[in-house]
Structure formats: structure tokens, C-alpha cells
Design a protein around this nucleic acid. Sequence first.
DNA 1: CCGAATCCTTTTTGATACTG
DNA 2: CAGTATCAAAAAGGATTCGG
Lengths: 129, 129
Amino acid sequence: MPAESRLSDGVEPDVCAAFRDALDRVGSKWGLAILAAASEGPVRFAELNRMIPGISRRMLTLTLRTLERDGMLVRTVHPTVPPQVEYTATSLAKDLFASTRALSAWAENNHEKIAAARAAYDDAEAARQ
Amino acid sequence: MPAESRLSDGVEPDVCAAFRDALDRVGSKWGLAILAAASEGPVRFAELNRMIPGISRRMLTLTLRTLERDGMLVRTVHPTVPPQVEYTATSLAKDLFASTRALSAWAENNHEKIAAARAAYDDAEAARQ
DNA sequence: CCGAATCCTTTTTGATACTG
DNA sequence: CAGTATCAAAAAGGATTCGG
């Protein structure tokens, strides 16, 4: 096997695609927060709105719809007055949320190093000018 | 501890923030592909351009810059003619890339279920109209 | 070979007001 | 309570051109 063939293969596009596939659910601004909340038990719309600081009703609705469509949440309407809607995480969603831990842990452990690297880079940048 | 306090806490915003912090490096369209390539050994600009199908020189440059700034890549210029630039992944980057596996694995194992859920949702949607 | 600069399109997110 | 509708802004990505 020639030495250069390792590089001509093209970065395992399948792994890359799989990763982006996961991010389509949990990579949006509010996706993970919603899954985290729903993973602890059924939650209602207004409850989520309170639990997730800064989210608008519009973005909550949009994100809930895509999560429901992808089979991550089950939406249950209780025909009461006033209406009551519950969102429940599926086991698929719970697995996804669990698979998220490694990345969160990495970020928690290393964000100081990143901040330091960034400061060093910006200093060097400023010095060059 | 009252029953409702579980919900009033607000979805552990720290975990959520940490996760998004990791995504800032690996969540962009080409970030993971570049880290994957550089994790196997030093790579050159043109090499990356060939290894990653579809990327433009512009996006390659931009993504390399932010990865370098965050301490994920080391950029080495060899003053030859023509100029030659090598990018090497740091141990930080390799750890990050490794932490990515869980999510990739989840996606590979479950993307069929997601496709099925989505088809079912869209069918139900179409039937309602 | 390795970029920087410019211009443009698409995608995502947000503010605000209204409804069964 | 649980949404919709509309408008606007911002961010990300891409095409093309130029330069050391």
C-alpha cells in the first residue's frame, strides 16, 4: 500500500456525515436544552418556556416540531380547557442525550485551555500589526 | 425538596453551554473533517483541499484559522519555493475528535429509525390535509 | 502554493402581534 | 395555554477574483 494512499482516501466522509446527522437534532441553538429538559420526564410547553431562559415561543415551537418529526419527542394533547400539551422524550432521544456527555465533558475540561490559546493567538496577531 | 423545584431549575444551563462550546469548534460544516484529517498526521493546505470533497479554498482557510486560534491546530510555514504550510493537530484536538465518536456512533446506529419516524410524521401530516 | 478581498445567497434566529 | 403569521436581522456558507 503506497504511502500516499492514506491521504487520498478523503477523510472518511461517512463518519463525518453521521456526525452531522446527529448535529441536525442537537446542534441547533435550543435542541439540546429541550432534550435535556424532556429527558427528565414529560414537560409542557409553558414549562419549557420557563425552564429555558431566553427562548422565544416561536423558536420553542419550531424546535419542538423538528424533534417530534425525527422521533425524538412524543406530543400528547389533553383536550382540556385550557388546552394542555405534553412532550415526552423517546428512548432514542435519551440515547442521543447520553451520547452528548463526552463532548460536554471535553468542553468543561478544556475551555480554559481554549481561552488561553485564543488569547495567545490574538496577542500575537495584535503584535504583528 | 418540593416537587416542582426540579423543573424550576432551568435545564442545567452550564452543561448546555459546555456542549455548545464544543460545537463551536466541531459543529461547523467542515470543522470535523479537518480535525479528522489532521489527527492522522500533519497535512498541507492543498492536501486538505483534495481530501475534503466540496470544500472551497475560502472555507478551508476560514476554518483552519479558527481551529488554529482555538489551539486545535499548529501552523508551520516552511520557507521554500513554492511555500509550504503544514497543519498539525494538538492533543487537545485529538481528545475532541475522540469525544466525537459517541455521537457519530449514535447517528450511525439510529439514522434508519430517524428516517422512519420522519416518513411517518410526514405521512400523517399529508393525511391531515 | 497558500492565501486575502469582495460580493452574494441561503439558513437560522429573533421581535412583535394575533388566535382557537 | 399553546401556538401562528409576518417581518427583519444576523450568521454561515459559497463563487469569484486578485496577490505574494
